[in-house]
Simulated assay, not measured.
Amino acid sequence: MRRLLLTIAMACPVLAHGVTFQERIEDVKWTVEGDRFECRLTQPVTGFGHGEFVRRAGEKPVFRIVTREAWLARGEAMLYAAASNWQSRDSDMLLGRIPVTNNERSAQSSQDQAGRLLTGMLEGRSPVVRHRTVYGDKLEVRLQPVSVRDAYQQYLDCVAGLLPVNFDQAHFTQVRFEGGGYELNERSIAHLDILLDYMREDKSVNRIRLDGYSDSSGDRLLNRDVSRRRALVVKNYLVANGFDEDAIIVRFHGERYPAKPNNSATNRAANRRVTIQMERVDERYALSEEQLEEHLDL
């Protein structure tokens, strides 16, 4: 590894602060890749790896550098929107620290840092990460803002097609109900439509669990029936809009397992709900319906 670093150092510009990885201006290339789940605006960096802006569905972008070798020192690197040569009157803009992740193979910014960095890059500034190797050698990775605008427009086109949510945001959610009712309101329908849109794209989601609940206002048996009807009305909406009925598990709990104590109108409203949990089940190890019932608290 030490020999590799010495070889790289001989091939790269050496500045006062250490070894810098950057593309020659004539070799700079921006690429855009993505789908409805994620969009990436990337610049390869010879001898190092690449730097990229990554935007997941339902989130703002982050910036990260990724190396092929696990030789970034642990800890935090420094992120800059550095002035270009023609901006000599301007100083480098420090955006803060970013943690080294992925077993010393990458460093990733926050969403706020990435937003400021992207703005700076469109103004001609260079994304720069300054850190050190596992051996203590100073290191700089610099992206060139050359010819980025056309690629950025492609990136924006990709972003426009992203889903409104990602799996982390969508896999466990809920819809609420008014009073003792079990009808879906416009807000709940809009929420379910978002989930359905996601599941049409993500074919790995092959099971949904619906759990119905009530507050403690009525009779226990009545509350149990209301919670059942709430879970079923959600199930029926999902099935009517294309989700496989056999892949939906319905449970109902009445007033048991409240989200909040039933001691105020606000808390009781929070307890009138159906929780929706998406699952990615490996069919090779999936339990039968009879086996599942042995594990479910009915």
Rank of each mutant, 00 (worst) to 15 (best):
S126E: 08
S109Q: 07
L143F: 01
L118A: 09
R97C: 15
R105M: 13
P145V: 10
E104W: 11
A114F: 00
Q111M: 12
K138C: 05
D112G: 02
P127A: 12
L117R: 15
Y152D: 05
G161M: 09
G120D: 12
G136N: 10
N102Q: 15
S106P: 06
G96Y: 03
R105C: 13
T119H: 09
L162T: 01
R132A: 08
A107P: 03
V141G: 05
S106M: 12
V146Q: 14
T101W: 06
P145H: 06
D150S: 12
L162Y: 08
R125K: 14
Q154K: 14
P145N: 13
L117T: 03
Y152H: 07
L156C: 08
L156E: 11
G136W: 07
S109A: 01
H131G: 06
A151N: 06
E140K: 10
P145M: 08
L118C: 07
T119I: 07
A160S: 05
L117N: 13
L162S: 02
Q154H: 13
G115W: 01
V128K: 12
P99V: 14
D112E: 14
E123D: 11
R125L: 08
R105F: 07
L139N: 10
I98A: 00
N102A: 15
M121N: 10
D112Q: 14
G115C: 06
R149F: 05
S109C: 02
V146L: 11
R105K: 13
S126Q: 10
G96N: 04
V141Q: 01
P145S: 10
N103G: 13
R130A: 07
T101P: 02
S147Y: 04
V148D: 05
Y155N: 03
S110V: 00
D157W: 02
